[in-house]
Design a protein around this nucleic acid. Structure first.
Lengths: 208, 208
DNA sequence: ATAACATTGTTAATGAAATAACATTATCTT
DNA sequence: AAGATAATGTTATTTCATTAACAATGTTAT
């Protein structure tokens, strides 16, 4: 189908389309128009159609899109057949919150390991996920075939953790710490700095 | 100085510049070149210079920028004199994590109230912040003059919470729930969907 | 059967962000 | 004193994302 990389923002929306569509189907619906899907996400219909065009799916003129088919196509784009394994590094509130979000959801991703350097947390189980000491990161990541890691440790530790993750062969890193990371180009890095985003809101609130 | 709105991404970087500069100054430094600041954030020097140009500050040719001055200027842009008050709605792991991030930090923002609908949590204090029942949101927000709210409730409750916040006169909303919100244009909305971002990483990891 | 309509799919235009190119200038070297 | 250097500040270009315009077409109404 499409082997070309999709635009960043389109991929984000595909994930959101899928979730909205799963609800929609669960409510007993079958077909959906671009303007309906758009209104579920509060975006424009044309953006929906454009995204759907990019993934090579086509609807029908008077019925719109078949919701189930669209869900499947999006799954083929985002998921891998076997599912991707995720590790969470840093079992503070944020780490636990992410573990809670995902474990038990019907996504193809699964969190299979947590890491922390606090011995009180090591060898316990959080949201069904075993917690190991960070010293065992490389070992476990290789052994389990984990491809994605979430960094939710304090800033001071983030750089070191990232280096270890890269060394362990991780493919994607989701960094919530406030330290900008530097990773080789074969590792996909997504950073999100909550404080910065709050400060951005503060700025625009001032301007309103 | 500049009364024109700055670009979104520039504001984000300003926040990150400031934090990097605070460390830099704390380490005893005084002046910084664009390429040094850039390397702290892993971005390009030209982007740093452009951002700094946009805020109307200028460095000196052979010394670069005065770190303290730059910190002050950024403060004038982002902060308000009295500081902005923030509420967190939903005291799950994510809510607590955000409260922990901010309370006690040297930012001008302060979290002054938390809300939850779980009576076990109401009337307790988390990270120094009192937790009220969601039914009292409008009252407390008005009384305290809270301008920004973080929504960290489960999806099902998010829409209702947002409506109440808008009604209470909130100016900025930071939505972590997976439900897209719809707010009037005088409210600044920042949404972040953690699952979606993880799925995006999954996609790009596949593509690498 | 024809016209009006509602919807999709696609191309074109616009806007925002990042990058590149380059002009300027204070300092240092010789 | 003249030239080289290393930095800034700014304009121009490119790239990416969104929005607008519109052509194509199956369905419904008359």
């Amino acid at each position: 189908m499409i082997n070309k990389k999709l635009p960043d923002k389109t991929v984000e929306r595909l994930s959101m389309y899928r979730r909205a569509l799963l609800n929609y189907v669960a409510a007993g619906n079958h077909h959906i128009f671009s303007h309906e899907l758009a209104s579920l996400l509060h975006i424009t219909p044309v953006q929906v159609r454009r995204d759907i065009m990019l993934i090579g799916y086509t609807g029908t003129l008077r019925q719109g899109y078949d919701a189930k088919e669209l869900i499947d196509i999006i799954g083929k784009i985002i998921d891998t057949r076997e599912g991707q394994k995720v590790a969470v590094v840093g079992i503070g509130n944020l780490g636990r919150s992410i573990m809670g979000y995902i474990s038990g959801k019907r996504t193809k991703m699964s969190i299979v390991a947590a890491f922390d350097n606090n011995s009180d947390k090591v060898d316990r189980v959080y949201a069904g996920i075993p917690c190991y000491h960070v010293d065992r990161m490389v070992e476990i990541i290789k052994q389990e075939g984990i491809s994605i890691a979430v960094i939710s440790v304090p800033g001071e530790e983030a750089v070191k953790v990232a280096e270890t993750l890269v060394m362990a062969g991780i493919k994607g890193i989701f960094n919530f710490s406030p330290r900008p990371l530097n990773v080789p180009s074969h590792v996909y890095l997504q950073e999100y700095d909550i404080i910065t985003m709050l400060e951005k809101i503060a700025y625009f609130v001032k301007k309103i």
